[in-house]
Nucleic acid binder design. Structure first.
Length: 950
RNA sequence: GCCGAAGUGGCGGAAUUGGUAGACGCGCUGGAUUCAAAAUCCAGUUUCCUCGGAAGUGUGGGUUCGAUUCCCACCUUCGGUACCA
């Protein structure tokens, strides 16, 4: 039989489907193993060769685990809500549900082409009402919960209201940023509205005013990644912050647990570091400063309470609530001007300006708690409203920014830390002895922090505090294509939740997807949906991360209509044993999923505290972007392109890079990448607006219209950059094309062969022939050139068994370490050696095919059948390694002199260390290296090497 | 700036606990086969050299009998983050 990839692939795809080869059961005696891929957003562009990298790795691992006797769950689904589909709907009028369904069908076809072992009966689609019913249900659970800081877990909000009814707010231990004090009687006297206002401070899902990116010209709210440098990505219009009442999730309540539980996870250090940075825990003290002439106090947060005697002024965030109140009439104008200045700047501009020091004096003063001195209160953009309490005590002697500010506005500086005992200490480092600090004088910084905090607490002016950088997550989007909230409002604006029996609240039909003028979601147009009796529905929808924060649970029991997953299914599958995905979700998705999971855990709805035990970040496969250099200046009204090597003659502003479809490029991806005359012709055909352009090469200029008459010495070199694989750069490689040319097995193995899974690298087809050759060589162990079967039933030789078992050992080791590139090398070595040994024995080839099966599922299935084995190779038992076959009788030792290898010597494997030491001195040629000297020392590492020290 | 990852032939990369640096593949060179080509097969391929050797894993130092691997300092590239008090 001939090796024909497309025939083999369609044959076995059919077989797997017919035999339900990849169907996974929840009822199994086998140990479970749950391996998960980050599910894709089904975009209209389809999969490119970068997407499957992680999927191939997980597929290999899943198939390996199955053969090792595990019941393996390896599902796939779609993160189907999202902006691109809505954008497409606005442009074309095609309903997002329709375009999404089309895209999903295309994705599934592409995925099946690569031969993944997904159990499609478990497919999940977040935009499906039977799925988002449970997203809505979990949202309601969050809404009806508060965080009990004593028990350290989420509890029902009703237990909080019960406690309020019994004892008011005094003995409550519940997480909140805004604690109000009231008695049980007061609580009873409040009306619904007042109660709700208080509960809002405790609920894990709550509403507050937050800011969105509003673009007046586009008349819509933009996502963060639609805003570039303070302008809308589409059109480049200005974007401003606009306040809107929006849903948020109180993830901050879980900050400590999210931080602490990282320790138990098998994630990479860099990923954990990213999450830790994001949570941003810092410990210090909060201190209340009295205001001169006002009853209010200003709360500040500091990590350096020891330096409190060095505080010479205060700074508030410009948006701080007290600013308007305390500003004196004389300073009112200055404050207004400054607010004007800050308000006009976007976030990006504000944070990119770290050099210029700006601010304004409010005219008000705070009272220093120890000295009683009056400290002027300033406002400045370098203090952020959302971090700490939005105000600081400024210590110019020990903080870089405070120092710059003090110098600019001529504020006093008092040195309070003497670092002369620590000459190596950096300035502002927490090292030194306190000076000019009253009762702290002479103390080491470390002790002074404790002493100062204790003194502040004793005065009732503050306490030790832990602060987190993590913010609550905004959960509202003013969009159509997302989960509707199961929420409506009374005419007084009081929240009414939908009953379980009403879920799912489905997205209503709509034909105009354009945003509304007010910035509300397009849903606001559907008045008969919005107005439900006396109630008005929430018209915002949930963000992308809503559906993806729990999808891994749904795979366990995807068709369940009574629960998001049954208790039995959850008990059996527990958690994800191995999660593979890109780093782009390092903080967003992974943080929200952990948060949701912990809430569910607190309610005993899931059996585990963390969702993803082990996580591997696959690197990205990037594309090469090939561009022509276009001069901005025209000549005779015609565009001018220059060859890459002439680019250095021009300033950066004089030219632009025009991406070229990579298929037209010769030597794509190399330093020498260029367009030949033929390539230039293709380029012009593709972009007719350049048909008259000049193409300036090193050997002279050619005009687009006159190409045919010219010879081949004219090459236009292009600029090669490694970057994203994207439609925008015309460098997308579709896996279908690679599969059609080389076969799915070759594509899979080549992606693995490119290098370590965690590393990013540009796609490059150089070298795919090597893998293709390997598969043909494997085939040639079974069939000769005339397609005659070569298989024999002879007993294997010792040498053949050794090749096989060395391979088993190495491949299994490497799979455990996710080193799939070296697995492929190992297979190549094995096939090369068996070929050399002329081995066609079933006893060797059967286990070899089983070893290769996880990597090349199609060819191995075909060869398994050829060998006369029963059933699917993917349900076979993994070959067992037997060490007795790899034992060496003799070992060839490298003989080194001072660590450099000079000679070799072969000894029987069981030769003792002493005998080797003796024998090595009688070695042929050794005198030359000894140079007549006696060796100082001979080191023998049995089985490894011999080193002679001269 | 801070945090993290990495730096090895012309290229992708390998080297398991500190123990023969460059496995495997691409590319290149030569040869066989062929009318010819493709395909296939065989041999060679880190650099320098006086063909016996010498140097060599970003740079400089250190520990060690021995360092791609461990330690210190620096350089470069990539990813994350950005006035976090």
């Amino acid at each position: 039989m001939q090796f024909n990839t497309s025939q083999i692939e369609s044959k076995w795809k059919e077989y797997w489907k017919k035999n339900d080869t990849y169907k996974v059961s929840n009822a199994s005696e086998k140990p479970k193993f749950y391996i998960l891929d980050m599910f894709p957003y089904p975009s209209g562009a389809g999969l490119h060769v970068g997407h499957p990298l992680g999927y191939i790795a997980s597929d290999i691992y899943a198939r390996y685990k199955t053969m090792k006797g595990f019941n393996v769950l390896h599902p796939m689904g779609f993160d189907a809500f999202g902006l691109p589909a809505e954008q497409y709907a606005i442009q074309t009028g095609v309903h997002p549900a329709d375009s999404t369904a089309t895209n999903i069908a295309m994705y599934k076809k592409q995925l099946n082409n690569i031969g993944f072992n997904y159990d499609w009966s478990r497919e999940v689609n977040t935009s499906n009402p039977s799925y988002y019913k449970w997203t809505q249900k979990i949202f309601l659970l969050l809404y009806n919960s508060f965080y009990n800081t004593k028990e350290q877990k989420a509890q029902s909000i009703s237990s909080l209201t019960d406690a309020f009814s019994v004892g008011g707010s005094s003995h409550i231990q519940a997480y909140s940023e805004d604690i109000q004090h009231f008695s049980a009687d007061e609580w009873a006297s409040y009306d619904l509205n007042q109660k709700e206002e208080i509960l809002t401070n405790y609920r894990l899902a709550y509403r507050k005013i937050s800011y969105v990116n509003w673009c007046e010209e586009l008349g819509t709210v933009l996502a963060n990644d639609e805003v570039k440098d303070g302008l809308s990505e589409r059109g480049g219009y200005p974007v401003e912050k606009r306040a809107m009442m929006q849903w948020s999730l109180r993830i901050t309540a879980y900050a400590e647990r999210l931080l602490k539980d990282l320790d138990q996870l098998e994630w990479s250090d860099s990923l954990k570091a990213m999450q830790r940075n994001w949570i941003g825990k810092s410990s210090g003290a909060k201190v209340f400063f009295d205001l001169d002439g006002f009853d209010e106090t200003v709360e500040i947060f500091t990590t350096r309470p020891d330096t409190i005697f060095g505080a010479t002024y205060m700074v508030m965030a410009p948006e701080h609530d007290l600013v308007q109140k305390i500003a004196t009439p004389e300073q009112k104008q200055a404050v207004e001007d400054y607010l004007q200045y800050v308000g006009a700047k976007s976030d990006i501009e504000r944070s990119s300006n770290t050099k210029d020091v700006t601010g304004a004096f409010t005219g008000a003063y705070a009272i220093h708690p120890f000295t009683g001195n009056k400290l002027p209160i300033w406002i400045s953009e370098y203090v952020l409203k959302d971090y700490g309490s939005g105000a600081i005590m400024a210590v110019p002697s020990d903080d870089e920014r405070d120092q710059a500010f003090a110098q600019k506005f001529d504020l006093p500086i008092i040195e309070v830390v003497d670092q002369s005992d620590y000459p190596s200490a950096e300035k502002f480092e927490k090292k030194g002895k306190m000076i000019n600090s009253d009762f702290l004088n002479g103390m080491e910084v470390k002790d002074a922090i404790k002493a100062a905090t204790a003194a502040i607490a004793k005065m009732g002016k503050g306490s030790k505090t832990i602060n987190y950088r993590l913010r609550d997550a905004i959960f509202s989007r003013q969009r159509y294509w997302g989960e509707p909230f199961p929420i409506k409002y009374t005419s007084d604006g009081i929240v009414v939740v939908d009953e379980d029996s009403q879920l799912p609240i489905e997205l209503p039909a709509l034909d105009n997807f354009k945003p509304t003028a007010s910035g509300a979601s397009p849903l606001a147009r559907v008045t008969n949906w919005v107005n439900e009796g006396a109630y008005t529905r929430e018209t915002d929808t949930m963000p992308g991360y809503a559906g993806s924060s729990w999808y891994f649970l749904r795979y366990m029991d995807p068709q369940n209509e009574n629960e998001f997953a049954s208790k039995e299914a959850l008990e059996y599958w527990q958690d994800v044993d191995l999660y593979i995905g890109g780093t782009e979700h390092a903080v967003g998705h992974l943080m929200y999923s952990r948060f949701w999971h912990k809430v569910l855990f607190d309610y005993e709805k899931v059996p585990t505290n963390e969702p993803f035990k082990k996580l591997i970040n696959q690197g990205m496969i990037q594309g090469v972007i090939e561009s022509l250099v276009l001069l901005k200046e025209k000549k005779d009204g015609k565009a001018q392109f220059i060859t890459e090597e002439l680019r250095s003659n021009y300033a950066k502003d004089d030219y632009a890079l025009i991406p070229v479809f990579v298929d037209y490029i010769t030597d794509y991806g190399s330093k020498d990448s260029h367009l030949t005359l033929e390539g230039i012709q293709k380029f012009i055909d593709w972009r007719p607006e350049y048909k008259d352009a000049y193409f300036i090469t090193s050997n002279g200029t050619i005009e687009g219209v006159a190409i045919n008459e010219l010879s081949d010495q004219y090459l236009m070199h292009t600029v090669s950059e490694v970057g994203k694989m994207s439609k925008r750069y015309f460098n997308v490689i579709n896996p279908d094309d690679v599969v059609a040319q080389y076969g799915a097995d070759c594509f899979r193995m080549y992606e693995m062969f490119l290098g370590p899974i965690e590393q990013s690298k540009p796609w490059d087809t150089k070298g795919i022939d090597g893998v293709s050759k390997f598969l043909r060589r494997l085939w040639s162990l079974f069939y000769d050139d005339n397609q005659h079967l070569l298989i024999s039933d002879e007993d294997p030789t010792k040498a053949e068994l050794k090749i096989l078992h060395k391979t088993i050992q190495k491949v299994e080791h490497d799979i455990h370490h996710f080193s799939f590139n070296t697995c492929v090398s190992t297979f190549m070595v094995a096939v090369n050696e068996l070929k050399k040994a002329n081995c066609h024995k079933k006893s060797i080839l059967s286990p070899l095919v089983a070893l290769i099966a996880p990597f090349a599922p199609f060819i191995s299935e075909e060869l398994w059948e050829t060998l006369g084995e029963q059933g699917s190779v993917h349900q076979a038992t993994y070959p067992e390694f037997n060490a007795s076959h790899t034992k060496e009788d003799e070992i060839t030792y490298p003989v080194c002199f001072n660590g450099k290898k000079r000679l070799e010597a072969t000894f029987a494997a069981d030769t003792s260390r002493d005998d080797i030491m003796k024998d090595v001195m009688t070695l042929n040629g050794i005198d030359k290296y000894l140079e007549g000297k006696t060796p100082k020392k001979i080191i023998v590492v049995p089985g490894r090497m011999i080193n002679i020290v001269v």
